[in-house]
């Protein structure tokens, strides 16, 4: 077990690290059978925090991959409105719409899970790791809700 894990730290960033309360410390049972080992956030007993950490990370990767294509599409406006309209015609296909729907949800999710990370690191109210685990489910629900609004409008 790594030193930071043994000490029960949530993050390994020197003086910025936060200590976890005893109940939330890693007991060494978690990471043996988990496919994506959460290293940024040492394994917690708290399942919701784990979902938030992985969700935040995977949504971030997906958004990073999407960004260059997003910029390329908008860049077609350099050739005037016709260029952009031609590119937008591509986004009319249902498959692209569904991909956009996914990305809108991931953006909302990354935002909400990101706010959780900021709250975790920059606040210090009692039991805040536990309190913030209550943020996870509403974040998921809100993202799906944003996705539904997008879908209803997009089709």
């Amino acid at each position: 077990m790594r030193e930071a894990e043994r000490r029960g730290n949530l993050y390994e960033f020197g003086t910025l690290s936060k200590r976890l309360p005893r109940f939330a410390r890693n007991d060494g049972l978690w990471h043996k059978d988990i496919f994506l080992k959460p290293i940024i956030m040492n394994p917690l007993r708290n399942h919701k925090s784990y979902i938030a950490a992985i969700g935040h990370r995977l949504s971030g990767i997906a958004l990073a991959i999407f960004l260059p294509f997003h910029f390329l599409l908008l860049g077609t406006a350099l050739e005037g409105a016709e260029g952009l309209d031609a590119a937008l015609a591509f986004t009319d296909s249902p498959l692209v719409k569904i991909a956009e729907w996914g990305l809108v949800m991931l953006l909302a999710l990354h935002l909400l899970f990101g706010l959780r990370v900021l709250a975790l690191e920059f606040t210090n109210w009692p039991n805040h790791a536990e309190t913030l685990s209550k943020w996870v489910l509403p974040s998921l629900v809100t993202s799906v809700f944003v996705g539904i609004i997008f879908l209803v409008h997009a089709f």
Binding site: A77, A81, E82, G83, L84, D85, L88, T91, V104, L107, A108, H110, L111, G114, L115, L118, V146, I149, F150, H153, A154
Partner: peptide, 21 residues
């Protein structure tokens, strides 16, 4: 966080009548 919040709002608003150049 602030910019994405505005961006998401605009996406949901702009997509209502379909996107055009």
């Amino acid at each position: 966080a602030l910019l994405v919040f505005i961006h998401l709002g605009l996406i949901l608003f702009a997509v209502r009548d379909g996107l055009s150049a």
